[in-house]
Amino acid sequence: MKHYTRRAPAGLDRRDDWRDHAACIGLGDLFLPRDEHHVDSTEPKRICAGCPVRLPCFEAAMKEEGTADQFRRAGVRGGLTPAERAALGRRTATGAVERLTAAEQAREEAQAKNGQAIDMIRKGVNDAQIAEVVGLAASTVGKIRRELGIPVQPVPKSIEETYAERTATVDGGHVRWTATSQQATLNGRTYTPARLAFLLGHGREPEGWVYVSCDRPGCVNPEHLTDRPMREQARQAVNA
C-alpha cells in the first residue's frame, strides 16, 4: 500500500498531482507510525481537517483498500483511522448489496408482470383490463402488444351501452331508434332494434315476432314490446 508523504523529485516529468498539495507532506512518521496499536490519531486528524485535498485523499484510500478489514489498512487517510475506514467500507458494501438486491427484485417483478400481460394479450383480453389486473400502465401493455404483433381487440359493448347509444326518449314515454342502421350486433349475434330492446327489458330472447303494443310505430321502449308468449298469455287472461 502506497502512502505519499513527499513531493516528487524535482524535474520528474509528470502532471500535477493532488498529493503534492497534501498537508501531511513530510509527516510520514506521524501519519504512518510503526506501532499503530497504541497511536494517538488526534494530531493527524487535526492536520487532515485543514487539508485542502482531504476529499481526494479519502476517495483514493477507499478505492485502494476496498472492503479490507481494519488490520489490512494503515495510517490516517482522509481524516479517518483504519478502523473508521473499515466500518465505512462495510456499510458501503452492505448498501451496494441491498441496492443490487432491490434492483434484481424489481426486475423480476417487472418480468412477471410482463409475462402475465403477454398471456392475457394472447387470450384476447383488452388492454384496459390487462392494465387493471396486472398493475401496468395501459401504454406499457400497448407497447407489449405491438412488440408481439397482436392487434388490439375491441372492447365489447354491453347491451345497455348499445341500446343507450342508439336510442332517444321522446314524449309520452316512447323511445325512438336513432341509429341509421336497423341492426345491432351483440356478442356475435345480430338483432333488430325491437328484439334488442326486448332482450334488454325482459332479460330473455323473444319468441316469435316482437310487436309494439303502444300507438307509436317503431317505438323501442321495452315496456311497449311483446312477443308471442306474452300475447298468448294476454289472450288467455281475457278469455278466462
Rank of each mutant, 00 (worst) to 15 (best):
G115M: 00
A60S: 11
H21E: 14
E108I: 05
A68C: 08
T190L: 03
R34D: 15
C48S: 03
R73T: 04
R122I: 07
Y191K: 00
T167A: 13
N239D: 10
E104D: 14
L186V: 15
A68M: 06
V155W: 01
I150H: 04
R73V: 05
P56H: 09
A137C: 08
G135S: 10
P82S: 03
L80E: 07
R73H: 03
D227W: 02
E36L: 04
D40K: 04
D215G: 14
H3W: 07
K123Q: 15
A164N: 15
P151E: 07
M230P: 01
G203K: 01
N221P: 05
L12S: 06
D40Y: 03
D171H: 09
G218C: 08
W209I: 12
R91Q: 13
Q233P: 00
C214M: 08
L186R: 08
G78A: 10
F198D: 01
I118T: 14
V212E: 01
Q153N: 04
G149W: 06
N239K: 13
A23K: 02
R46A: 15
P217I: 04
P229R: 09
A112K: 13
R6G: 00
T167H: 12
A240H: 14
L32Y: 14
E160L: 11
T140V: 08
G218M: 07
G173K: 06
D69I: 02
M120N: 05
N187M: 01
P193V: 05
R166E: 03
K63G: 04
Q105G: 00
A22H: 02
V134R: 06
V175W: 04
R231Y: 01
E207N: 07
A10E: 10
R176Q: 14
E165V: 12
K2M: 09
D20T: 08
L186I: 14
R235E: 10
M1S: 11
Q105Y: 04
I150M: 07
V134E: 13
R77H: 12
K63E: 15
A194Y: 00
Y4C: 02
G135Y: 12
T167K: 07
H174C: 10
V76K: 00
H3M: 08
S181F: 00
G142L: 06
E207P: 01
A131L: 09
C24K: 02
S213R: 12
R6K: 05
A106I: 05
Y163E: 01
R99Y: 02
A93H: 14
E232D: 13
G79V: 11
H202R: 14
G75A: 11
A106L: 10
L199P: 01
R85T: 09
A23F: 04
W209P: 04
C48W: 02
E109D: 14
D171P: 01
A22M: 02
G201A: 03
D35F: 13
Y211N: 09
G26N: 02
V134W: 08
E36I: 08
Q233E: 10
Y211C: 03
R231S: 07
R166C: 10
E43W: 03
E108P: 00
A237M: 11
P44C: 03
G208A: 02
H224P: 10
G149L: 13
